[in-house]
Design a protein around this nucleic acid. Structure first.
Lengths: 207, 207
DNA sequence: TAGATTGTTAATCGATTAACAATC
DNA sequence: TAGATTGTTAATCGATTAACAATC
């Protein structure tokens, strides 16, 4: 499966979550238009995404929910799972950890880091919190591939550097400071202020 | 200023934050390529965005930081500011409230809602937390235009319905359940699981 | 069969980038 | 002036959608 568009990957992840819920409800098959409606996408969009991953159904009774889940899992997940660490144990760090580790996914947050001595060397939100100085060591020892940055904005660049030099492969930056990473490292940035300001702009337009 | 692309609005919001930091550092002018580098965009992208908002500089010494901030503010902000409410006072709800109200923006989260009687009728993260049953009343009384949903995923659809019927104009959905709103209401959805799974996919590809 | 559905190509739409004239 | 920078159009790239043949 070579080079699926980033947008498609995002939607596949969303489809899977919906499909798992359908499965839990005992639904065995789902039409492209059903899946589309659940996500406010079009049926064509859904069919095209599914085409791209090489799955198809012989029946005209929709896609096999279980089979589709498996195909998506094959694309997104690795068999052994993937370890992640969270850097910055504030409200957001705790929210993400609790949320992600609550789901049964192939992704696990297995370590947290913070500078605050009140927080380090304790178990918070179910995972061990280490002092910042140990990032490099722990990442290597515990084979952590993904780093999630939830520190105050001014610390983002330095944290990002440490992560990169520790050999991390993917970075999720939740601070408002944009960061730079080498091309071979995958970076995703998200800032809430931007989202909220976008909403504000469109609300303003509508008046 | 009619109908700027959504992507441009997002970037303008990001530029502004960077520009404010530049201003605080005493920087009065900034080149398109400087602003671009700070965000991993291209200089053309920056110039084009700025062109679209109708700002231009006579100098060849870069954009006037202060002037550009004002132009962006004119586009995104409303003079009186905009009130928002957060629905669901868990870790994520608290994180967003603290983060947003910490910044000096024209957006204020002025009310929180939760079903948990332990939380209601108290002040949490600096704002009053009301029981869910009062959403309609408070939204109208306090002229709240934006609703931010951070409840458990299964409650998202019902919360969204209440918000819509209370006359909200913009919704930010941070749960993993996609929701539907009428066309005249602006909706932005963000789910962390999807982001992290995207990172996971690309990390996997790179192996 | 008629109607509904899928899979896929081609057309369209939107966003980014290349190219370049104008200007300091 | 030469070099750097901006503003803007045109070209390109990528993503979505329209159209439709095939099939149950």
């Amino acid at each position: 499966m070579n080079k699926l568009p980033e947008k498609t990957i995002g939607r596949l992840s969303e489809y899977r979550r919906t499909l798992l819920i359908c499965l839990a409800k005992g639904k065995t098959h789902i039409y492209s238009h059903e899946l589309a409606n659940l996500h406010n996408y079009t049926a064509v969009q859904v069919r095209r995404d599914i085409m791209l991953i090489g799955y198809s159904t012989t029946l005209k009774k929709g896609y096999d929910v279980k089979a589709l889940i498996d195909v998506i899992a094959n694309i997104i997940d690795t068999e052994e799972g993937l370890n992640a660490a969270i850097i910055g144990v504030g409200n957001l760090g705790k929210a993400i950890t609790t949320y992600l580790n609550g789901k049964r996914t192939k992704l696990r947050i297995i370590a947290a880091f913070d500078t605050d001595p009140e927080k380090t060397n304790r178990v918070i939100a179910g995972i061990k919190c280490y002092p910042m100085s140990e990032i490099n060591k722990i990442i290597k020892e515990q084979d952590i591939r993904i780093g999630i940055i939830t520190v105050p904005p001014e610390d983002a660049p330095s944290v990002s550097e440490i992560l990169v030099s520790s050999g991390i492969k993917g970075v999720l930056n939740y601070t408002s400071t944009p960061i730079n990473v080498p091309k071979n490292i995958y970076l995703e940035e998200y800032d809430m202020i931007t989202s909220i300001e976008k909403v504000a702009y469109f609300v303003k337009q509508k008046k």
